[in-house]
Write a protein that binds this DNA or RNA. Structure first.
Lengths: 335, 335
DNA sequence: CTGAAAGCGCTAACAT
DNA sequence: ATGTTAGCGCTTTCAG
């Protein structure tokens, strides 16, 4: 069995008390250099590691933070996670990742699970299906630090990090307009998500600026965020099957690729331009091609984590919360 | 601050002893139905959750397993992780994911970190850079259960799960040959990886079967597994810059896409066929197109996790270890 | 059927 | 400078 050396083992072997060993190990100034050296050398020799579980129990904190995302396979989220880890590790925190696959049920289960694991704080990007927020609100009221990123819950009073979705969507839509498109459809994510409303706003503002009427029939929502491939295919086919648009503005990564697949399958020579949010590294290789809006995912992950650790380590309850917004970049592509 | 209810709180509130509460909570048969009901109801009411950290300390195990992969953004690994989670969750284990980004240093740090977090077992796919295995061997000798998947360490006596790389590579190479290709290059991963040797073996066997000589100049290794984009670009350009091959067989996911990018950039109309390992869901949309070998990633994750939990929960030390091999599937594509 | 007490590994008053 | 002790939350003998 896996039975690591404990402080007690060392104390016994060296004929010292556990507290002396403990203090020597953490370099307490009250311990003589001599003893310190003996202890340190011996600890080294037997490959001693303090048991973080015991520590957590004592300190009532685990030095780990939980992350709730829809899926790590999505490049936006894996890049954000890299950002999260970079900050967390440097401050001595462990990161526990949990995927909802855009399912509300999984989100509830995972949040509970993480809370049970005594995490010190939670980084959340909501699942596409989530409409009821009580699982998060309950924990927040109990004092668990929570920071939202990307898909935020506006009604909760805490730090939030997102990209400037309105502006990003506006730029992409205007780009399509300047390419000469008049009928621009919008393939959107689940309607209750913060990003959905924001991106739709940018889309509509661009249309209005250029005197193109907003047509509700040209807007479709995918309530499972594209987790179900068929829902994307159905939505796109409704666009193209009669009176097709000359462009589609797509609101998120998984939807963008789903949209391209459908176009490739059912509208091979259609010349429909597509612009959409995507952080995939493969975008440049795609055909049909995709003009894409890229979010500063790594940066967002970093910022959110810094904010979270600030709350966790703050001596006093925080009253003032920030909402940070980072700019996206548009990458034109294709004909 | 975040201070959950404890068993002690309940005991006090109900005027019982902590042991009675503890037993009632876990349905101990020695407790009267009446008391049990009172305790359960009250626990429900105050939203009591047992503290898993205290439990871990007591039981000397954490019901969590660590996973070491190079990166979650790689679809092969994210699919494998889904498989891992599906088994782990159903058996009551938590999954802690850790990325090496194919760096040896990160691998060492992460392994130590996980071991310190008192995980009950470790699932490992080696980083491309790793040549020294003492960080893993040390833990294994101390009794930590370890199961390898995909990039296995053959010299360690434990369970292993991989796909049938020799066969997969053979089929892909033979497919290229049957397409009429004669000069088939091989873009390989770091030479010390198990998968590299196996896939090269399949490649060479296919060539030999069809009486094509193996040419060392047509084989290039990427020692950072493509983490450094330039290394892929350099390798591919060496292939194509003079006397280009008519096909390239690529040994892994990141390399496959890197190879396509380079071809798109420097050999747009070359007609070089590419076949490679990839579990990306975007493959069908790529241009240039890629014939791909797909690994049963989800299945591999499941199997590896089942094996790991078997070791963890086994009453007796395990002596007989298995090496499972799963079949890949070839998906022809393009002209 | 219920309670008291010890112990998991570690730290931190509080002695000495 | 070092030792003793209590306690973090929970389970589990051992008593009653």
């Amino acid at each position: 069995m896996f039975k690591p050396t404990t402080i007690k083992d060392i104390a016994k072997a060296l004929n010292l008390s556990t507290s002396t060993v403990s203090r020597a190990l953490r370099g307490g100034y009250e311990i003589s250099e001599e003893t310190k050296k003996i202890v340190l050398d011996y600890a080294e020799k037997v490959n001693f590691k303090r048991n973080p579980i015991a520590l957590s129990l004592k300190e009532r904190r685990s030095y780990s933070i939980g992350v709730i995302v829809c899926e790590v396979a999505n490049q936006f989220f894996s890049q954000a996670i890299d950002g999260i880890e970079s900050v967390a590790y440097s401050k001595g925190y462990h990161v526990i990742i949990s995927q909802t696959h855009d399912s509300y049920d999984r989100e509830v289960i995972n949040v509970e699970h993480l809370a049970n694991r005594s995490i010190d704080g939670l980084l959340v990007s909501l699942s596409a299906e989530t409409k009821d927020y009580s699982h998060l609100e309950k924990l927040h009221e109990q004092g668990l630090p929570i920071v939202f990123f990307d898909r935020v819950l506006n009604s909760m009073n805490t730090h939030k990090v997102s990209s400037n979705n309105v502006k990003g969507a506006f730029e992409a839509t205007e780009f399509l307009i300047k390419k000469g498109c008049k009928r621009i459809a919008h393939l959107a994510n689940a309607s209750q998500l913060s990003i959905t409303a924001e991106r739709q706003k940018g889309y509509e503002e661009a249309l209005k600026k250029h005197n193109i009427p907003v047509d509700d029939k040209l807007i479709k929502y995918c309530k499972h965020g594209g987790r179900d491939k068929m829902e994307v295919e159905i939505a796109v086919r409704e666009f193209i099957d009669h009176d097709p648009p000359d462009a589609i503005f797509v609101a998120s990564d998984r939807l963008s690729t789903g949209c391209l697949s459908t176009l490739k399958k059912y509208a091979t020579n259609s010349n429909i331009l597509v612009a959409g949010f995507s952080n995939s590294e493969l975008v440049e290789l795609l055909n049909p091609s995709l003009s894409y809006i890229r979010q500063p995912a790594f940066e967002m992950g970093k910022k959110a984590t810094e904010m979270l650790i600030n709350i966790i380590e703050s001596k006093y309850p925080i009253e003032e919360f920030e909402s940070i917004m980072l700019d996206t970049t548009l990458h034109p592509n294709g004909a």
